[in-house]
Computed example of a mutant assay.
Amino acid sequence: MDNINSLPALSSHIDYLLRLGDSTLVLGQRLAEWCGHGPVLEEDIALGNIALDLIGQSRLLLSHAGSLMQPPQSEDQLAYFREQFGFRNFTMLELPNSGLEKGQQQRDYAFTICRNFLFSAYAVLLWQALAESADRQLAAIAAKSAKEARYHLRHSSDWMLRFGDGTAESHRRAQDALNALLPYAQEFFSADQTEQQAAAEDIAIPGSSLKPDWEQLVQGVIQDATLAWPPSWNSSQFRSSGKTGQHSEHFGFLLAEMQSLARAHPGANW
Rank of each mutant, 00 (worst) to 15 (best):
Q29L: 12
P206I: 02
A264M: 09
M258N: 11
D76H: 11
R30M: 08
D76C: 08
D224T: 10
Q186S: 15
T91M: 00
I205N: 05
T167E: 03
L118P: 08
F188E: 07
L61M: 04
T112Q: 07
R263N: 12
L161C: 12
K147D: 03
M160P: 02
E187A: 00
S236W: 01
A262D: 07
L68Y: 01
A32P: 06
Q223N: 12
S58R: 01
D108E: 12
A139K: 03
A146F: 06
G36H: 07
S157A: 15
F163M: 11
L41Y: 12
N269M: 13
C35P: 01
L18F: 13
I203D: 04
Q175D: 07
L227C: 10
Q106L: 12
H13E: 13
E94S: 09
D202S: 15
A264Y: 00
Q223V: 12
N116C: 15
S209N: 07
Q175G: 06
F119P: 00
A140C: 02
N49F: 06
H152S: 11
N179A: 11
E257W: 08
S157F: 01
R173Q: 15
I50K: 02
A198L: 05
S67M: 04
S208G: 08
A199L: 01
G99A: 03
E195I: 13
W270I: 12
S74M: 02
D224F: 02
F119Y: 14
E201F: 05
N116G: 14
Q84S: 13
L178N: 00
A146C: 11
A174L: 03
L126E: 10
D22Q: 01
Q259N: 14
D22A: 04
A51N: 06
P206Y: 08
H152P: 09
D202Y: 12
V221G: 06
L95N: 07
G252A: 13
Q259G: 00
S190G: 09
D44V: 02
S241P: 00
P230Q: 02
L7T: 07
Q186R: 15
Q29C: 10
E195P: 05
L25N: 10
L126R: 13
S145E: 06
S209G: 03
E187L: 00
H152E: 11
